[in-house]
Design a protein around this nucleic acid. Structure first.
Lengths: 349, 349
DNA sequence: TTTTTTTGCGCAAACGATTGCGCGGGAGGT
DNA sequence: ACCTCCCGCGCAATCGTTTGCGCAAAAAAA
């Protein structure tokens, strides 16, 4: 059915070797006569020959394909990263097998194993982040790996992430400066490096400003919308509800907004909201959202760079890149009372 | 380096054929003794053997991989569709090679050709939509194809789309009912089926309600954010600016919002806005957005279904599925004056 | 014991490309 | 006339699986 190199060779009246050499641009190198070269090209054109990447990959032990696993492709944060990975990879001649793990470790393990069987040339993982054993297995195969976002620190692997501690610290400080003392944090998946760092940042900022930490104010258990919704509902029920909500992902924020709207609670008049992850529509919300923005595109770009660096340069030391997040101040944080003297004030005007 | 089936066979003391048959679950069919079977399994386990999908694909002429091309993975509309395609495909045992065409026809042609060389088992295309020749070429290879969203009508191929004419018609009618007469339409890529249908719907709705069509009110040229921004800026400059803006994609809407905010124009007091494509944050905007919602997830799900249907059932007649969009009325359309008697009124309360 | 049947598994040919090695023939040197 | 060298290209192995066909040995039948 499909036209093969042999068909081309027959049509051109040469051997497959010659046909192959012409079509891989090695005509000059193997001193193939111009007439023969033209004959091959003409035959290939006439038959509209397309090389079979499976066969080539098998022979060459190279697929020109990268694997990508991500927790949720519809999350704008991941979507932007993956999009950038795609374009950067394309620039280097690679295509992408994209897997969605749906925040499930089991699914991630399965997908990673699948990508190995598919013999991708490299893997860019945006891991669920609770465990990394399967990545250790991966490394034993010798195939390059880059971790993005939830990088953990058990693995000595090139990685790109944001300074989550700093992001959360600054965010919390911003809330404190605005006079908030009961700040609830709706956390993401416990046990993931990003979440842990963010919670630490939150804790440390409170401590640094002499605010006692109330563990009951750290709630939630994953990065999804439903988590934001449910926890907000619960928080509003409390006798002393928090005056500020720190949502640790854009999807959580969406759930928060749903719940607040449903309960008729206004931002920032009734409660302040600060979000980790900034999304394109944030400035246009009913109350423009103050948020910690991560350089999404840069992360995707760097991930690819770290991968191709491994292809080229062999194994240098693993580079762990930490980018700086930026607090984008908009209007969702209200000043509840003048900040006490001696504390840093950098709230919204 | 990598452990092969041969290694397993040697370790187990059998031939590769036997090893293969055991590991593909055909032990019973070939009456392989339980001891032998166990030996093979043990060897495979011990060596942590993983079948090479390239080799298998070459031999079987089946890759268990689907190709997906989409104009923009970071557009929430496409992101949701692709995510659903991914999970549905995974349910059928397929993985995805995902390509981003960035709304470029050239890139699309290239990617489609690449996917052919990779010998994917099927292609789900969310085409740029200005030309379809390359899909004709694709069909000649006999590999199943499904079109999603911008389906055109030149090709007799299974497809999933929304009734864009109806969506635009109802949207326009909604604006008319609210008393708007100068309704600007910021269109997407001219020449694409979705855009054409939407423009027709807009025209016909105006005509049906006796409103003269002003061609100068149909502006813009692609589905991107910048288009929304630029055209809105221009529209606001006019002597008689429109009282309503019909943005034909979520990204265009984002541009519109940027421009309006910049100019200090309030929705819906100063101008009404209606969007094609609904996004998750639409209810939480400064002015909750009235929008035409497309059943994104359903579209992804159906696309995969139409594809596997071709794998199984062979070539039945091409099914062209048209889903109904739903106008979600929120608050971004203001009633500018009582609608004249005799016209249908279904504006927001 | 001989013939037939069944059991359990191996040989080798695909699948479609790439590539090291070498070979025949013409040109050039002696 | 003979040897050498280079040009232009083909042979065949290889990558890792799957699978049609067939073959020995054991079991059953005669």
């Amino acid at each position: 059915m499909a036209v093969t190199l042999n068909d081309v060779a027959v049509q051109a009246g040469v051997s497959v070797s010659t046909a192959s050499r012409v079509l891989t641009g090695q005509a000059a190198k193997f001193r193939i006569s111009p007439e023969t070269e033209q004959a091959v090209r003409a035959a290939a054109e006439a038959l509209s020959y397309r090389v079979n990447h499976l066969a080539r990959g098998l022979r060459l032990r190279k697929t020109n394909t990268l694997g990508v696993v991500a927790p949720d492709l519809s999350n704008p944060f991941f979507a932007h990263i993956v999009k950038r990975i795609q374009s950067a990879a394309h620039g280097h001649g690679y295509s992408l097998v994209v897997c969605n793990t749906d925040e499930s470790l089991d699914l991630e393990v399965e997908q990673v194993s699948l990508l190995h069987r598919k013999r991708v040339d490299g893997l860019i993982a945006l891991p669920v982040g609770q465990r990394y054993d399967h990545f250790e297995d991966w490394l034993e195969t010798g195939v390059p790996l880059v971790l993005v976002d939830r990088c953990g620190d058990g693995l000595d692997v090139p990685s790109v992430e944001v300074d989550n501690y700093r992001g959360a610290y600054e965010a919390t400080e911003h809330l404190l400066a605005a006079g908030h003392r009961r700040i609830a944090m709706i956390q993401g998946l416990p046990g993931t490096s990003t979440n842990t760092a963010r919670v630490r940042g939150y804790h440390d900022a409170l401590a640094a400003h002499g605010v006692p930490v109330d563990e009951a104010l750290v709630v939630g258990g994953d990065f999804r919308q439903q988590n934001g919704y449910v926890e907000t509902k619960l928080l509003l029920q409390r006798e002393h509800p928090p005056t500020a909500l720190f949502a640790t992902s854009d999807l959580i924020t969406l759930g928060v907004l749903d719940a607040l709207a449903e309960e008729g609670v206004a931002i920032p008049d009734d409660v302040s909201v600060l979000s980790f992850d900034d999304f394109d529509f944030a400035p246009h919300l009913r109350c423009p959202l103050t948020a910690v923005r991560q350089p999404r595109e840069m992360m995707g770009e760097l991930a690819v760079k770290l991968l191709v660096e491994q292809f080229d340069g062999g194994a240098r030391e693993a580079r762990r890149i930490v980018l700086r997040p930026r607090l984008v101040v908009r209007e969702s944080v209200a000043v509840v009372r003048p900040a006490p003297a001696g504390e840093r004030v950098d709230a919204a005007p």
